[in-house]
Structures are given as C-alpha cells and as structure tokens.
Amino acid sequence: MSLLRIEDLHVEVDGKPILVGIDLAVEAGEVHAVMGPNGSGKSTLANVLAGRPGYDVVRGSMTVDGEDVRTLSPEERSLHGLFLAFQYPIEIPGVSNMEFLKAAVDAHALGRGEEPPTAVDFVKRARVAATRLQFDPDFLKRGVNDGFSGGEKKRNEILQMLILEPRLAVLDETDSGLDIDALQVVADGINAFRANSNAVVLVTHYQRLLNYVVPDHVHVLADGRIVHSGDRGLALELEERGYGWLGG
C-alpha cells in the first residue's frame, strides 16, 4: 500500500480549474520532488493535501496510508500523519513557539491515545530540535514566526516537522528565499527526518535543494498535470534547459 496515493485529482479554486488529473504514488522511505514553473499548480497540490479551505476537490481521490483524506478536517489530516511546511508561514503574535508546539504535540499524543508528554520532557525535545536548526535558546519564548526573518520562518517549519514526526511531509517551496547557509541547515533537517517509515514530497521551483536532499523520483507539473516523471537526472536537465522544452 502506498503511503500517499493520488488518483485523477481535479481541483478548483474560485471555480477555476487548477489541477486537472494528477496521479501520484509515494512509497514509505521515498523522497519525491515535484517541480514546475510558476502557476503550474505545485502549491495547490500541497495545499489541497493539507485541506486548505477554498481548494475544492471536484474529482479524484487522495489517500494517506489507505485512508481517503478528502473529508477530513485539516487537524484530522495532521493527526493522521500529514504535515505541510508552508511556503509563507503566518505570524501568530503573542502565542509562543513553546505554547504552540506543546498544543500540537499534545493533540497528536491524544490522537494516538497516549498521555501528552510532561512539560519537562517536551522542553528537552524542543530544545534539541531548536539547536539542530540553529535557533537561539530564547527561540521557544518568541511568538510563532513573530518578527522572524524569511530564513527563520522556514527553519521553524522544519523544526515543527522534526517534533511532530509525521508519516508524510509535504514541503512547499521550503528552499525559496534561503541563503546557502540556511539551505544547508534546512537540508540537514530534512535528511535527519528521512526514514524507511516516512516519506517526503518536496515542492520546488529550483533544483538547488535537490543537491542536498537527493530525491528518488522527480515529477514535472505543468498546467495542472504531471507531464514528466523521472529520476534525479530530470531535475538536472531542467536546471540546464529550463521548463520551456517540456512543451504543453
């Protein structure tokens, strides 16, 4: 059974078709890169998986671990093991990272029928993750993404992924706007996360990140459908030749 299976997925936003028949299967232990020019529907794919309001599935199915997630609320999808790293992480002033992460971790624990971790255990875990992503010790006290630089916001997404340990992580342009050092930190985080039990879908415009996180499969999205699939080599070809040669 595939960890993620998408079949004939059609998605509309404001009545306008954006995705027009996507088929994709991701197995546990794999990393897939979904690439494509601006406006090809990459971010829509990421958002519709996470259940963002306003993205209407008009046809097709998407299953995670065999369960169709179309009718699940965003938080139910999250508890089911689906994680989205946002392209533009929102700021929540006043709510500390600590508080936010604890609420999320507690919800996941309760979802698994477990006791939430004690505050002490949680803080230990959070500190380890924060250090790995090179955050200052006062990071946990700061508001969620409040006043964060672009790079800090993206690192925070990866930190949340490491702490929530999802089955399937969808990273929406997590590499965009990062300088080379931050890109390295983010890539290290993703590589540390990779395991035989989980899978990663990297949504990206550039193949830069793929130098650090080597994908098993590369797909090219254009005009709402996957027009090419291949291995790592496809990404390098795209870098050299751009998206133009793929045609419609």
Binding site: R52, P74, S78, F83, I90, I92, A103, A104, A107, Q160
Partner: peptide, 15 residues
Amino acid sequence: SDEQLFLCQQRGIDP
C-alpha cells in the same frame, strides 16, 4: 486570520 487558524489546524490543533 484564516491563515493563523489553518496553520494551527495543520499542526493538529482544533479551531
């Protein structure tokens, strides 16, 4: 904002 709520929900926190 809707975006704030969606972020929380995506991390498993109910609205």
